[in-house]
Design a protein around this nucleic acid. Structure first.
Length: 226
DNA sequence: GCATTAACCACAG
DNA sequence: CTGTGGTTAATGC
């Protein structure tokens, strides 16, 4: 744990950027920075929560234990808030967050966060914007996950990591095959098969968790056609 | 009917 | 945990 001086923070969220110096000081006094290693649980479904979390660096998976098995709802990279829906909506967390790469976050007291929303319209507006973006993304993901075939979903996942997360054609998958299955609603076996198919077809180069996209256009076509 | 898709199972590395 | 092969149920043509 470490004290965070919010006013000097170089990675302020767009909401925090509009806070007054006095509000920034109040935030700093009610905010704790914590480092998480890959695999550490940041907060857990079913546990009580009274914090909003701001991810300053790293990568996090949001996941829920469903009636049958685990499901990864989404993967979020810094900078981003976590837990606004669950902390505002419910006393108990409705989902879990786990670091899938080394991650640093700030825990912000919910009452201070609420105070900013009540008192600073600009702050509230920025938060609404982020929540709206997230909701639209999850609508899109819901449709894609439901309607696309497995190859399309797998192509989506690869493009997501390449474009959305790493901004590189080559990257190390931060998930196991099983987790990747949980992410795109399929089985570990199907993931293995499809990655191997893509590799044989020359679409990607595959070596364990290391992936390099060789034929991005074809991958996009597969994604588009489902 | 027949072909395709994708899950489930089993087993090996 | 990962890769593969066989089996099987569901769905489409």
């Amino acid at each position: 744990m470490e004290e965070i001086l919010c006013k000097d923070c170089g990675i302020k969220s767009s909401a925090v950027k509009v806070l007054s110096p006095l509000e920034l000081e109040r935030l700093g006094n009610n905010c704790v920075g914590v480092n998480f290693r890959k695999g550490d649980v940041i907060f857990k479904q079913g546990a009580f929560s009274s914090n909003i979390i701001y991810v300053r660096s790293g990568l996090v998976k949001i996941h829920m234990t469903g009636p049958v098995e685990e499901q990864i709802i989404k993967i979020t990279k810094a900078p981003s808030y976590l837990g606004i829906p669950t902390t505002f909506g419910e006393k108990i967390n409705q989902y879990s967050a786990t670091a899938i790469e080394n991650t640093t976050v700030c825990f912000i007291d919910i009452d201070v966060f609420k105070e900013f929303i009540f008192m600073n319209g600009r702050f509230a507006y920025e938060i609404v914007i982020e929540l709206c973006r997230n909701e639209l993304n999850s609508f899109q993901k819901c449709v894609d996950r439901t309607q696309k075939h497995i190859h399309g979903r797998a192509a989506d996942a690869l493009l997501f990591f390449s474009d959305g997360i790493y901004e590189n054609d080559e990257f190390i998958l931060p998930l196991s095959r099983l987790e990747l299955g949980h992410f795109i609603n399929t089985s570990r076996e199907s993931i293995c098969r499809i990655l191997s198919d893509f590799s044989k077809a020359g679409i990607i180069h595959l070596s364990g968790k290391k992936i390099k996209i060789l034929n991005r256009d074809l991958l996009k076509t597969i994604s588009k056609n489902g």
